[in-house]
Design a protein around this nucleic acid. Structure first.
Lengths: 345, 345
DNA sequence: ATGAAAGCGCTAACAC
DNA sequence: GTGTTAGCGCTTTCAT
């Protein structure tokens, strides 16, 4: 390679890295030789000497939940645009898997890891934080000081959903949560209770059902709600997959959505608009989420990144009204039902 | 590290790699030191010296199509079990993206690449094949000799769908294909025509509609079919997302599935069973696909892998009958409609 | 069985 | 401005 261009390997290195001091003529020779041989610089060797791999780890809980692929795609685009590659891992909520994944990422010398799942051992996190290893938690951070967090504004998002339902005239709302041992489902449920409280509405305990953030969970939870003597007129769900499950469960009964029961989701995955009926939901812009995660990582990795000191990124949410919500039955003439459509994304 | 155990770095290396000749006492000291320091061997350095990165590339066309996450998960599990890590890339059907992705993977020194998308430049593929770079094409391989291919048995899968519909009494079947510039959608469409031919059934050209393998495409294609004066009584779709779109389009009309029109998908993604009605589809076991892809890659990478000479892996399909297919209207008493349920996965 | 030493492909400090 | 050289962290001869 160097011989072929008749220069030293150092010059090749400089040419490849666009160091301006290289003689134009030599640079041309080098590039020509590179073309001819089809030379690609070896990233491993570069990483070895520079101490930086330009690899980012991305840990999600379940790659088969459609929300994550959307997020992964955004994350990857942004990372690649900055010259990073992404190693993705899916934990399936299994702590052992999470642990081994984390270790594998560290062995691969990733420059930083974005964690979008619960259950990374606190002990390990502490060690990493002490070593100042760049770590960003999205929505699932442990309660440790000095950690970078990306926090979707659940409180406000859930509030938007509840307010929408209340505005339509609903008073009896149920909430299907995610798995309650996790942090972010907890936050969402608390936000629901708080939002109801703000409106002076009470929530009987049987209107709080635990789901699993999957369709199966949504179905089971909805079925449980349907056994109650006092049915809610609206159901708010902790994520879209749960809401899709709820729609499915309702479809198998005589209850109609939105005429008998309104359903609201959370996330606004692509699929939501194709549900029957199209799902009213709270959008959590995964582009913003991904952007914050990448920026947080870069802030930790690149020594003089402008946001180096920033610890927290808040991600706003907004309501997307489609056709799964309407006035509660009886509150208005039938022909107005379903007219709750304000804005269709 | 070596000092800490009071041995040479060579001994540490041997201990870490479980070379049997290491003195048990020394090995113990080494492992103890490793524990204490929390030492992790640096994969980059290992890769540099061994010439193998234990990284696999996986190129898919669209990570947001639910079929792919399912496949990715399987692939990743299998790869990790063999001590590999996976770099995933999504091309979004963009040839430029595909090209740059391929280059990035090569720069990262991946040991092999599984390609599950169309549009990798033939020129590049040829070069790689000449260099004997391990490459496996899943369902989208170019027509070059000496390439490893994983081929789902589209011909048989589509045939299973068509036979099922024919057995129910359908004679007028339409087919919504994928994007026809790609190889695998083409194969599926041809399989459809052949299967119909076998049954002595003809397909009017307006019953062959091109979709995009997305819900949007399925909706548009179904809407187009619905403008025909002679409606088909059944629609076979090139993948599940298309079928889901078709269901959606039908739902917005007065036509009912399966009473007026039967719909069959292809892939059997997780979502399929949660559709309204649950989708009858042809399963392409993504576990088998992933397993074949990983095996194909290993056959190319590991010098004396038993399957080194194997070039082609066929993946069988099988029919999963749910509730989106039934006897065509009028062919049987109404109370028997929907009774086409044979096997519910 | 173990240690010393070479070298994987590259970057960066130093000399010219 | 360019070449020479050390060394990133490891594996692997080659001596011992």
């Amino acid at each position: 390679m160097a011989q072929r261009a008749g220069v030293s390997i150092a010059t090749v290195s400089r040419a490849v890295n666009n160091i301006p001091t290289v003689n134009a003529e030599l640079a041309r020779r080098v590039w020509k030789a590179i073309e001819e041989v089809g030379y690609l610089p070896n990233t491993q060797a570069r990483a070895l000497v520079s101490g930086r791999s330009r690899l980012l780890g991305l840990i999600v809980s379940e790659i088969t939940n459609p929300f994550f692929p959307e997020l992964i795609q955004e994350f990857e685009n942004l990372a690649v645009a900055q010259g990073y590659e992404v190693l993705i891992g899916s934990t399936n909520y299994d702590p052992a898997r999470t642990e081994s994944l984390m270790r594998r990422l560290l062995q691969r010398n990733v420059d930083g890891v974005a964690v979008m799942t619960f259950g990374v051992e606190e002990e390990l996190v502490k060690q990493l934080v002490e070593r100042e290893f760049p770590l960003v938690f999205v929505d699932a951070g442990p309660d440790l000081p000095n950690i970078r967090l990306v926090q979707p504004d659940y409180a406000e998002g859930i509030r938007q959903g509840v307010q929408h339902l209340a505005a339509l005239g609903h008073r009896h709302m149920a909430f299907i949560s995610g798995p309650m041992q996790q942090r972010s489902p907890k936050a969402r449920r608390e936000a629901f209770l708080k939002s109801m409280c703000e409106l002076g509405l009470t929530v009987p305990p049987e209107h709080l059902v635990e789901g699993t953030h999957t369709m199966e969970g949504g179905i089971a939870a909805m079925e449980q709600l349907l056994t109650l003597s006092e049915l809610p007129t609206a159901v708010m769900c902790s994520n879209d997959m749960t809401a899709i499950g709820a729609l499915h469960a309702l479809y198998r009964t005589t209850h109609r959505v939105p005429d008998d029961i309104s359903v609201v989701g959370f996330d606004d995955i692509h699929l939501a608009q194709f549900m029957l009926p199209p799902l009213t939901t709270v959008q959590m812009a995964c582009h913003d989420l991904a952007a914050a995660a990448v920026e947080g990582l870069r802030a930790g990795i690149e020594p003089d990144h402008p946001k180096h000191a920033k610890r927290e990124w808040r991600i706003p949410t907004h309501l997307v009204v489609r056709q799964s919500t309407a006035f509660p039955r009886g509150s208005l003439p039938a022909q107005l039902s379903g007219a709750g459509t304000i804005h269709n994304a």
